[in-house]
């Protein structure tokens, strides 16, 4: 899952950015409205965490501009403005959620996660495919009743694919969702993660769940034997 954090406070950029990364998100950070808008327009984020009072362009203007251009990325407004009018105005401008500073990191993470799930049309904390179960909240995976330990990148890739079962996902899409702009993944890194993921899933049940569509990408589905 890829998140854009648009916040002008350097300290909040560091703390919130770290918390999001630690929770398994690929995070891009922007310090002003113009840069934030550019990033939001040119990348496919799952969630944008957006401050309202920003230099160069305020958050609400950024949001309206984004919506006018047809971008439906889920937006969580993060701001010091706390009156009912402010909240209503923020939500009417196209925001999906609103969090007032100061906030609990846990709450921020929970809201970001909910918005991510909503992005894939799911309200469940649990994703299931054949005998594979993913607890999105606890970030735990099990197959055929057997718990599987995954590295963060492996888990992120599995969850991303599991959110789109039966859908062919290109390598570029995977990279865009797994890595922030700062990261420059090597060309075979996705294949490498996939290989490791397949091996770990295969240890619990040899029936493959992730399939390669040559020249197109990857698809996760339980094929009829």
């Amino acid at each position: 899952m890829r998140v854009l954090l648009v916040e002008d406070s350097i300290r909040l950029q560091q703390t919130v950015g770290t918390a999001l990364r630690r929770s398994g998100y690929a995070v891009d950070v922007s310090g002003d409205g113009e840069d934030g808008l550019w990033r939001a327009e040119n990348n496919d984020y799952d969630v944008i965490v957006l401050d309202i009072m920003l230099p160069k362009r305020d958050g609400l203007s950024l949001l309206q501009c984004l919506r006018e251009k047809g971008k439906t990325t889920h937006v969580l407004l993060l701001t010091a403005k706390d009156t009912v009018q402010d909240r209503v105005h923020g939500l009417k401008s196209g925001a999906d959620d609103y969090l007032v500073k100061p906030f609990a990191l846990e709450e921020l993470l929970a809201r970001v996660e909910t918005l991510c799930r909503r992005g894939y049309g799911s309200k469940q904390n649990r994703l299931t495919l054949a005998d594979l179960e993913i607890d999105v909240a606890a970030k735990k995976v099990s197959r055929a009743g057997q718990s599987i330990k995954l590295k963060p990148r492996e888990y992120q890739l599995l969850e991303y694919l599991a959110h789109r079962p039966g859908e062919v996902v290109s390598q570029a899409e995977i990279e865009a969702h797994l890595y922030s702009d700062d990261a420059e993944p090597m060309s075979n890194v996705v294949e490498s993660i996939l290989s490791s993921l397949r091996r770990k899933l295969g240890e619990a049940n040899p029936v493959p769940l992730i399939h390669t569509r040559r020249g197109l990408g990857y698809v996760m589905e339980a094929l009829e034997s």
């Binding site: 300290r11 909040l12 703390t15 918390a19 010091a80 500073k101």
Partner: peptide, 25 residues
């Protein structure tokens, strides 16, 4: 009031997130 809230809310948010981040990770 808005400015006062902002002047205090933001540093408090920074303090809180610093502390929570340190406790959690």
């Amino acid at each position: 009031s808005d400015d006062l809230a902002h002047e205090f809310r933001t540093p408090i948010a920074e303090l809180r997130s610093l502390a929570e981040l340190s406790l959690k990770w």
